[in-house]
Computed example of a mutant assay.
Amino acid sequence: MLPRISADTALFLDFDGTLVELASQPEAVEIPPGLVDSLKTLSHQLNGALALVSGRRMLDLDQFLSPLRLPTAAEHGAHRRSADGELTSAHAVNMEAVLQTAGALVSQHPGLRLEQKNLAISLHYRHAPELESLCLAEMQAGIARSTGLDLMQGKCVIDIKPAGVSKGTAIAAFMAEAPFAGRTPLFAGDDVTDEAGFTQVQSMGGYAVKVGQGPTVAQHRCDSVGQLMAWLQSAVMANQATDTHNSNAKGSERLSA
């Protein structure tokens, strides 16, 4: 059973593989009907305590969910926008060695795709899975020639980001701020890159939901993006029913008085 999203929840959601199905190319994801409206309503019901925590660029997330602009941790926590719109970023790190390595791999193997972000890069091998070992070895070598960088391997992707930031550190930063502070954190994600977030929320007495298969530290699991979407929509309806009940109860109290 998935945990309940209640009025005192601080809700954190990954994007790819969690809110949307993984696509053949990063720009090809499709936004499910009703997703934006559900997120908007949930954010209102939680008094703004709903944030995206993703490896994507913030600009991409805003465009996919336009006109909605949620508090967001992008590029695995390297960029963060608080609920009041304040932007914070990790220190820029020299990525020349890993960019050269990734660029050489892409030029030699057409099935690879390099996604360059603001403070991070992603090397996608979804269309050339046989190159996984080569990509990992070469990018590890690139990291060894650099300082201040971390490598993470996700679903057919190798992410390079500044060291010291993660989805876990991003969630911790949100939880120190309004409107998240004092609430029970809940994070849903699907990939190895989400494990730091799972560990963080559970260390704070919260809940973690793993979408799909694979080993995880998360205490809860749902089978698919569709099931997660149904869970979010059921939370919207349950909160609306609670609000209606409370409103009716207050009305009855006024009449009896």
Rank of each mutant, 00 (worst) to 15 (best):
N118M: 14
P162N: 06
I171A: 05
L131R: 09
G142A: 02
G142V: 02
V209E: 10
V106S: 05
P185D: 01
Q153W: 07
H220N: 10
P185I: 01
T184G: 08
L119I: 11
R145P: 10
E130W: 09
L114P: 06
G148E: 04
K161W: 04
D150P: 00
V106C: 09
A141Q: 15
A141W: 08
V192M: 14
L131E: 12
I158N: 07
A120H: 10
A218T: 10
V165W: 02
Q202K: 08
P179R: 04
L131I: 06
M139Q: 05
D194I: 07
G189D: 11
G111K: 04
S133K: 15
S146R: 02
L149W: 00
D159N: 10
A208K: 06
V157M: 01
A97K: 07
C135H: 08
T101R: 14
N118K: 15
I171E: 02
V106G: 04
V165C: 08
V211E: 12
G189N: 13
I121E: 00
E195P: 13
A181R: 15
I171P: 03
H220Q: 10
Q108H: 15
E96V: 11
Q219I: 03
S203Y: 12
T193L: 06
L105C: 04
H124Q: 00
T193A: 07
Q108M: 09
P179M: 05
K155Q: 13
H220M: 08
N94Q: 12
M139R: 06
G111L: 03
M95T: 11
H124T: 02
Q153I: 09
D194A: 08
P129R: 00
A181W: 14
Q140W: 13
L112M: 07
R126D: 00
A128H: 07
G164D: 00
V165K: 00
V192K: 14
H127V: 00
A144Q: 12
S166A: 02
V201Y: 09
V211N: 11
G148H: 05
K167N: 06
L105Q: 03
C156T: 01
R113Q: 11
V217P: 13
Q213F: 12
G182H: 02
E115L: 02
Q100M: 10
F174M: 05
V192A: 15
A120Q: 11
Q200I: 03
I158C: 11
S166H: 05
M139N: 08
K210A: 11
D191M: 12
H124I: 01
C135K: 04
A102V: 04
T184C: 13
G111H: 11
L149I: 03
V201W: 06
L134G: 09
L112T: 07
